[in-house]
Design a binder for these strands. Structure first.
Length: 229
DNA sequence: GCGACAG
DNA sequence: ATCTTGTCGC
């Protein structure tokens, strides 16, 4: 398996491929969400991808894959842990999405190559990074109202690496950044549009739901009942 | 050296 | 991520 040191080298190489402008279908018809669920006791990981109609948010397709964890959790090397089940789930999808929202950072990453960038470059698809918490960067003066945005500025070079986006009045923001083939402003607009009722976009909420189901299904299916006599 | 650290 | 119900506050 790839070592953490080699993973960092790979990130440094692949980051040059990231496209930070809009290369999207017009109009957008379908959008996917991804999420991963863990089971600490069994060392299992389940990844799910769900495709929604962009306008109605109805579910058009779902695919999940459960497997053993192959890489430790190391902040900054997150994608090497979550990509294997997500890629396999994506491969099984019967509807190809126009773009994808990942549950993690894109450029808002210490080497500017988070999960959303890795997933996007690997699939050559538009991907948005939308994290629940901050990995790096600082922001200030974020208003309380839904739709408020504050720039997320990298500590090292002061670069604009993402947005803190308030999706509900007075509720903690989410962190939006470019994954691949999309601009930060477009990514921010889309995440706000998808967060219709809750803090997180519906894509992420649904993917989380299906990943949880996939993990439970896998565990119950592998529990072979004792041989009846 | 210390703190921070996507899930 | 996970351990985990009711409870404090707007």
């Amino acid at each position: 398996m790839i070592t953490p040191a080699d993973a960092i080298i790979l990130q440094e190489q692949l980051r040059a491929q990231v496209i930070t402008t809009d290369v999207l279908p017009h109009p957008i018809r379908t959008i996917a969400g991804t999420d991963v669920e863990y089971d600490k006791s069994t060392n299992l990981i389940a990844g799910s991808v769900v495709v929604l109609d962009y306008n109605t948010l109805s579910v058009l397709a779902v695919a999940s894959h459960c497997m053993e964890v192959t890489f430790p959790y190391i902040p900054g090397l997150f994608s090497f842990r979550e990509m294997p089940p997500l890629l396999e789930a994506y491969r099984q999808l019967e509807v190809e999405p126009d773009l994808i929202i990942c549950d993690g950072q894109g450029l808002a990453h210490q080497r500017r190559f988070g999960l959303a960038c890795h997933f996007g470059v690997t699939l050559n698809k538009p991907v948005i990074g939308c994290g629940k918490t901050r990995l790096c960067g600082q922001y200030q003066n974020l208003d309380e109202a839904r739709g408020s945005v504050a720039p997320l500025i990298a500590e090292d070079d002061q670069a604009l690496i993402g947005h803190a986006l308030r999706t509900r009045d007075g509720i903690n923001p989410v962190f939006v950044s470019v994954g691949h083939k999309i601009s930060l402003d477009t990514a921010t607009d889309i995440v706000l549009k998808m967060a219709t009722q809750y803090r997180l976009p519906e894509t992420t909420r649904l993917a989380d739901h299906y990943a949880r189901l996939a993990l439970l299904d896998y565990k119950s299916g592998s529990n072979k009942p004792p041989e009846s006599v």
